[in-house]
Amino acid sequence: MPTYTCTSPAGGLDPDRRAGLAAAITLAHSEVTGAAAGFAQVVFCDVAVGGFFVGGRPLDGSTLFIRGEIRAGRSARERDRLVARLIADAAEASGLPRHAIWIYIAELPARCMAEFGHVLPEPGDEEAWIAALPGEARARIAGGRPSE
């Protein structure tokens, strides 16, 4: 349900750091929002040197941009906690200083999102949503696998 896209300069994060970062983002989202960890998606995108600009200048050095698309309906307090937690945990997992971590959280109405072939539930309604899914979809969710 939540999708976090991590964008950084090519070669800036080795596979171990990526795995640690994916685990940290997943845990932070789950613990702060109460959503099942198995729903969290983390995608990594590398940008070639000279391919990312800030203020009209090419980005130099290591910076990590994390854009999280989550379902709308979380309180302002939860969103504040999520952003603070993501900054701290991403800095630790990536080995980058906190000032190099940029976080963006975008909220989407649940009715504008579909996974496993079904429109997503409102936050807090996940159990009933899962129970109403066909058996194959429930099995995929339990296994953390998208459709093959």
Rank of each mutant, 00 (worst) to 15 (best):
F52P: 06
L21K: 04
L133W: 00
V47I: 12
L64D: 02
A35S: 12
P15M: 04
G51I: 01
R138V: 02
S75Q: 01
V42K: 03
A76Q: 13
G95F: 04
P97K: 10
D16W: 12
E69P: 00
Y104E: 14
F39A: 09
M1Q: 00
R81Y: 06
V83C: 11
Y104R: 14
L120P: 00
E148F: 11
A19H: 07
H29W: 13
L82S: 04
A10W: 07
P134V: 11
L120H: 00
E126G: 02
G56H: 03
V54C: 09
A100V: 08
A100K: 04
L13I: 06
E69V: 14
D46Q: 05
A137C: 08
G55C: 04
R140T: 01
C112I: 09
R77L: 15
R81V: 11
A91Y: 06
I130V: 15
V42T: 06
A132L: 09
I101N: 01
E122Q: 08
R140V: 05
E69K: 07
D89P: 07
A88K: 15
L59K: 06
Y4F: 15
A93F: 09
Y104W: 10
H118F: 07
A48E: 11
H29S: 07
S75L: 07
L21F: 03
V49L: 15
D125P: 00
A36Y: 14
D14A: 12
D46M: 05
I25V: 14
R18W: 05
A84D: 10
S8H: 15
F39Y: 12
L133H: 00
I130A: 06
A131L: 09
A19W: 08
I130T: 02
I101F: 00
D125M: 13
H29E: 12
V42S: 02
L27W: 05
E78P: 00
G34P: 01
A19K: 15
D14R: 08
F65E: 10
L120Y: 01
